[in-house]
Nucleic acid binder design. Structure first.
Lengths: 208, 208
DNA sequence: CCGGATATTGACCGATTGGTCAGGTACTTA
DNA sequence: TAAGTACCTGACCAATCGGTCAATATCCGG
C-alpha cells in the first residue's frame, strides 16, 4: 500500500467500485490485481472480500454500474424538438459529446463487447445499445413518414452508420491526430457536424 | 500439456507465433500465459525462451506479424479501375470483406489500439491506418477534381466515416444480430452497398 | 563415428496471484 | 457498561505467473 490514494469520498463499497472502475477502464481484467484495487481505494485487500465474494463479482458489479451510468448519459442525447433534421444534428452532437465526457465508461463497456474469449457479461454491455439504437431508428422513420427523408433506405442501416462514425471517432482519436490531412481530431463538434451534413444530403428526397 | 494441439506445420518459431497469435487474439496480454502458448503450440514452455527472450518480445513479434499481414490484406482493397464512384463502391466492399476474412488479426491489432494503460506497440498497430487512409483520401480528392463529387467537403472526414462504418460493423456484428429491426447483420455486402449508396448521394454535386 | 551446434526438456526459482482466516477496531443498541 | 455487529486488517495459503538452468535429445558436417 505505497500509494497515497486520492479517492476519499463515500463508504467502503463505493470507494472500491470507483477504484475498480478506474483501473478496469485502463487495463484488462487479468491485468488488474485485487491488491492494486485495494491500494487505489486506500483499503486493505482483505476488506474488498467483505463487500464482494470474489474478483468476478466485483468486475461484474463495476460493469453493471458503468453500463447503467453510460446508458443514462447516452440517453440524454435524444432530444425531440425542432425538425427531424435538427433532431438528428443534435443527436449526433450530444452522442459524441457523451462518449467523450465519460471515456472510462465507454472503454470499459466496449472492451467487454470486444472480448471473445471469456464473455463475462455482454448482456450488460449490450443494454446501452438497444434503447438508443431504437430511439435513433424511430427518429429516422419519423423523418421518412414526414417526407423529410427518402423512404427507400433502411433506418437501422443509417443508425448503424451514424453510431459507428461517432464510436470510431472516439476510438481512433489518438491515431487520427497523427495524420496531417486530418484537422478535426481535436474538433469533435466540427466532425459530427460534417458527418451529419453529408448524411442529411444522402437521405434527402430526390426533390431537395 | 493436456491439450493435443492441432498446429503441426512449420518449424518451432512459427508454431509458437501461430499459437500465440491465436491466443492473443482471443484474450488480453495478461490473460494469456506462456504455459498456455506452449501447450497450444505443442511444445514445452522453456522451449519458447529458446526463440524469444521474454513474453513482451513474443507479443511484439506476434503483433508485428499480424500488423503486417493485416496491412497486406487491407491494401488489396484499393483497386483503381472504373469511375471514382465505382472505385469507392469496390473499396468499401473489399475492405469489409478483408476485415471479416481475418477477424483474429483485426481483433489483435484493434485491442492494442484501444489499450490505454500499457501502450506496448501502437506504432505497429497504427501502420495499417496510414497508407489505407491516405489511399482513400486520394480517391476522394480525385473524385472532387474530376467533378464527380462536390468540392466542399473534407475528404479525410469522409474517409473516417467510411472506415468507421466498416470497423463498427465488424466490431458490433454479434450485437447487431440480436436486434430485430436489423436485417443486414449477416449480409455485409448488403450493408456496405447501402452505406456507400447513401454516401455517394451525400457527396454528389448539387446538379446530380 | 565423432563433435559441435541447435533444439528441447523437466525441474526449479522468486514473485505475485486470488482468496482465507483469526482477530482487532469502532460504532450501535440495550 | 456490556454485548452485538458491521467494518477492517496483517498474516497466511495454495496455485500460478514469467523466467532460469543444467541436462539431454537431435541433427549435421567431417
Amino acid at each position: 500500500m505505497d500509494n497515497i490514494q486520492a479517492i476519499a469520498e463515500g463508504d467502503g463499497r463505493q470507494r472500491i467500485l470507483a477504484a475498480a472502475e478506474k483501473l478496469f477502464s485502463d487495463k484488462a481484467f487479468d491485468a488488474v490485481s485485487m491488491s492494486a484495487i485495494a491500494c487505489e481505494a486506500g483499503i486493505s485487500k482483505a476488506n474488498i472480500y467483505h463487500y464482494f465474494p470474489n474478483k468476478d463479482t466485483l468486475y461484474l458489479a463495476v460493469l453493471r454500474m458503468a453500463s447503467h451510468n453510460l446508458r443514462a448519459v447516452l440517453n440524454e442525447s435524444v432530444s425531440a424538438h425542432g425538425s427531424v433534421r435538427d433532431v438528428l444534428r443534435h443527436f449526433a452532437h450530444n452522442h459524441l459529446q457523451a462518449l467523450l465526457k465519460r471515456p472510462e465508461l465507454v472503454r470499459l463497456v466496449w472492451r467487454e463487447i470486444l472480448e471473445k474469449g471469456a464473455p463475462r457479461a455482454q448482456e450488460f454491455a449490450e443494454q446501452g445499445f438497444a434503447d438508443m439504437f431504437s430511439a435513433l431508428v424511430d427518429v429516422l422513420k419519423l423523418g421518412q413518414t414526414r417526407g423529410e427523408f427518402r423512404p427507400d433506405f433502411d433506418p437501422a442501416l443509417v443508425a448503424t452508420l451514424l453510431l459507428g462514425a461517432n464510436v470510431f471517432f472516439f476510438q481512433s482519436r489518438d491515431i487520427l491526430r497523427h495524420y496531417p490531412p486530418i484537422t478535426f481530431a481535436d474538433d469533435p463538434a466540427g466532425y459530427d457536424a460534417g458527418i451529419v451534413e453529408i448524411l442529411l444530403r444522402g437521405l434527402a428526397p430526390a426533390t431537395a
